[in-house]
Nucleic acid binder design. Sequence first.
DNA 1: AAACACGTTGGTAACGTTGTCAACCGCTAG
DNA 2: CTAGCGGTTGACAACGTTACCAACGTGTTT
Lengths: 337, 337
Amino acid sequence: MDHGGRKPTLKDVAALGGVSVISASRVMRGAPNISPALRAKVEKAAETIGYQRNRIAGSLRGQATELIAVIVPSMSNHVFPQIVDGIDDALKGSQLRLVLGMTKYEDTSEEAILRDMLTWNPAGVILSGLEHSRQTEEMLAHFAGPIVEVMDCDGDVIDKAVGVSMEEAGQLIARHLVERGYKRIAYVGAWGERPKRSLKRRLSFEAELARLGCPIITSVILDEASSLESGAEGLRQLLARNLDLDAVFFANDDLALGALFYCQAQNISVPGQIALAGYNGLEMCQSISPRLTTISTPRYEMGRLAGDLARKQIEGDTAPRQQSIRLEMKLIEGETT
Amino acid sequence: MDHGGRKPTLKDVAALGGVSVISASRVMRGAPNISPALRAKVEKAAETIGYQRNRIAGSLRGQATELIAVIVPSMSNHVFPQIVDGIDDALKGSQLRLVLGMTKYEDTSEEAILRDMLTWNPAGVILSGLEHSRQTEEMLAHFAGPIVEVMDCDGDVIDKAVGVSMEEAGQLIARHLVERGYKRIAYVGAWGERPKRSLKRRLSFEAELARLGCPIITSVILDEASSLESGAEGLRQLLARNLDLDAVFFANDDLALGALFYCQAQNISVPGQIALAGYNGLEMCQSISPRLTTISTPRYEMGRLAGDLARKQIEGDTAPRQQSIRLEMKLIEGETT
DNA sequence: AAACACGTTGGTAACGTTGTCAACCGCTAG
DNA sequence: CTAGCGGTTGACAACGTTACCAACGTGTTT
């Protein structure tokens, strides 16, 4: 089966089938206008010697590969896996494959990863957020394929963006808390507010609170990753300031849940003594008791749509640049506010 | 900057720098024995025209690419993202990139995805579990690079495996439940017991229960995905059978947590009326009250080690084939049993 | 009967890089 | 003074595929 230890090539298939190399190529990639006889010969030969296409060679001749570069911060969080899931589903049925890189929330690594990925000549690029280094933007400016930014939608778009509005999120929660009568409100963030999305959300939250005549009392921004523990820690730090707070908005549900569990352990009544709200709308939040107030974001859909946009453009749809798709978010009024 | 709209190639760099193409190539990939003068000329030229390596062309000349094919069932679950995270970390600092495919728990898709991925000539393959279709095994037999199977470690290994023992998991929980005095024990699974890992775990669990003189009473295997809701549904179905059960082992923590929340909502006391145990050891389980009894598995480490093994072999380490690394799992005795 | 269109097949030349071998340089050892 | 050696550079030919153009046969139109 192995001819000289080498992997069989189109040449081998052609030789065995008694046809030209180019004909074999056409059959293997399903080109039109092939006689059934030729097709049969080639397919039989390919089968016999166990031929496998070599798309590396193919993409060298053609221009781009059928790889989509996807760069996200991390997988150890509940948000990005779902985005990736959506992208993968969108790509299903096409020949496109997802190449994944993670920045681990390090500022400089998006650039490094992108630079590396571009050496593979990907057909498209999907990255998260709208804020990128100058170098990154420059690289992207020279990139020919679709560029989709997921997560966020208010800001300057390079090519296409799919996301939710951070502004809206901050406002929704601010209004909700004020409407419920909370007056002494605080905020807890993590990861030193990288990526910038969470910062935008907080600023909008604070601006709306101020507009409603109820300015934010204090904030804690942790350096650590978001986790249940850091949520508890954040709340602990807030409470230690003795500011008589009555509500806290957390950068995400992980933090908020951690704080909620902390309260339960410490017998702090929620929302009696303190109200808690999160962001993301993880499934978990609606199953626990009390149900967490949060904002549900369409994570899977964002990924799905991002994948679709990239795919369509690669497949020839001439979509307009500078397109920003804003998806709906939903305030989930739980029992913690 | 763009010469004729085309991306600049080594030829352009060489022309501008007044050196040969091959010298430019050597500088760009950091080959040894280059004079500082030549290096400087090339680097300057590359910088000026914004040259980017084209690894597609490079890997055509060389043999394999620097891509690692990773095939997992899904990302919408809490297990695989952490594995992927570990793999990515292991690859950091190398030139290797991760190409991701998801089977969505469909039996035939691993094969299809692998076939597709092999057309990219990856340097290594990482897949989950030890059970694969005959076609898959055949393709892998012809594959030259490292093949690492993650998750499971008892069974026949193709090349290398990193995982935990499903046997051990079943036994640990069985013994724990019996030791705590539970006698009427049931099991809940999901996804129609795909992948096979969960089946192995259940069989070992049942075998151990039988050995301890306490055979399993009944089981529910749901077709749906694992989720909090399906966990609740599974428990509901079990209870409806009126078998006077006193403990239930769930295929994973999602199911177990869902069941726990269901019990809390229905005022079924845990573990008073019924004891619950899960599998995976998600962070969440130890934060809620009551803390869930479960088995903690080293997910990140599995990925990390799998990535390391693949990387080392690609970098030249001649590791023995048929190597199976068994990682430790830990029974976490929570408050639900 | 000639001209033409169309479906089908093949030959050739790329695509951008790197492995191999050869050539050259300056230097040291004999 | 020459042979030889290591460090450095270059020419050439691949790697496996596909775009492009040419050529063929068959059937249809004028």
